[in-house]
């Protein structure tokens, strides 16, 4: 479905067919979901990655940035140039968090690591993603991670003999050698949980933001190119998130201009993360 007004009749149709719980799984369906939810107060809606809620509209999201911390750890340790590429879509909190988590985690392994950021103003534009990847490589990046949807960048990295990560799913089929690992978004358990809640009458409008601990964020198997010591570090980050001992957004954190934004020992609150609009030190970006 296109992320425009054409989603409205489809949602209405689903509601009229008798669906009692409707998941709208992209940010671009936000206002359409709210509108149709207003017309069908007895139907429950679940909107993914949005921030508008109602009595019958919940929102749910995933802490993708926890996965980015794992990728950053691997990239920081494996990069020989210390210059990492980050190909993103738009400057929205999800991407900002991803960039910052990636950069901070890389700097834990290599304090001098920098992250070059290119935002291409699209979630999906394979030729532009490919060209942007070539650009980042030409500017010295030897590992490029993507926050857009196509496997195009991985295919460029494969041709150049460099490394990168899959986005949203295991993309190793597209680039068997370049693909180090991937962040996988696993929504199944959440769908089951919410459906059970509807059936037993406990459904309420909520705002869910799950991560490694709840199993929404999963890291794909590491490729053979990830050395054992790097894999152990990456596993450590995952384990830390699961038992609550690790949070990449722990101070001291400086912004791009070197101002101290988060004091030593402080951990950024979820509310602050949700609206984060500044990049950390070591991120080279145009905006």
């Amino acid at each position: 479905m296109a992320e425009d007004a054409s989603a409205i009749p489809v949602l209405r149709d689903l509601a009229q067919q008798g669906c009692k719980l409707i998941f709208t799984t992209s940010y671009g369906y936000m206002d359409q979901t709210l509108q149709v939810a207003g017309e069908f107060p007895d139907v429950k809606f679940e909107h993914c990655t949005g921030f508008k809620r109602a009595d019958n509209v919940s929102t749910y999201n995933s802490k993708f940035h926890e996965g980015r911390a794992v990728l950053g750890t691997i990239a920081g340790k494996m990069s020989t140039s210390g210059v990492l590429g980050y190909l993103g879509s738009y400057k929205v909190p999800e991407v900002v968090l991803g960039v910052n988590a990636f950069a901070l985690a890389a700097q834990k392994q290599n304090p001098a690591a920098t992250v070059k950021l290119v935002l291409i103003d699209s979630w999906f534009d394979p030729p532009k993603e490919a060209a942007a990847t070539e650009t980042l490589i030409n500017l010295g990046c030897d590992i490029v991670t993507t926050h857009t949807d196509s496997p195009g960048p991985l295919q460029i990295l494969e041709q150049k003999g460099l490394h990168g990560f899959g986005q949203g799913a295991d993309m190793s089929a597209f680039a068997p050698n370049a693909h180090l690992t991937a962040i996988e978004d696993i929504w199944g358990p959440y769908y089951v949980e919410r459906t059970k809640a509807l059936l037993d009458g406990s459904w309420a409008s909520t705002d869910t933001w799950d991560g490694f601990k709840e199993g929404t964020v999963v890291i794909a198997p590491y490729s053979k190119d990830v050395p054992a010591d790097v894999a152990a570090l990456a596993d450590g980050v995952q384990a830390g998130y699961k038992d609550g001992s690790y949070d990449i957004f722990t101070g001291p954190i400086y912004d791009q201009d070197g101002n101290l934004k988060v004091k030593e020992g402080e951990v950024m609150a979820l509310g602050d993360l949700a609206v984060m609009d500044w990049f950390v030190k070591g991120v080279e970006s145009a905006s």
């Binding site: 590429g85 950021l117 532009k128 942007a132 650009t135 080279e284 145009a286 905006s287």
Partner: peptide
């Protein structure tokens, strides 16, 4: 023009908004 947009962004130039380039 399309390549310049990407090179400008990757080099950290922000003298023009990216929408302008597009």
């Amino acid at each position: 023009l399309m390549a310049l947009e990407l090179y400008a962004k990757a080099s950290g130039f922000s003298f023009l908004p990216s929408q302008f380039w597009a």
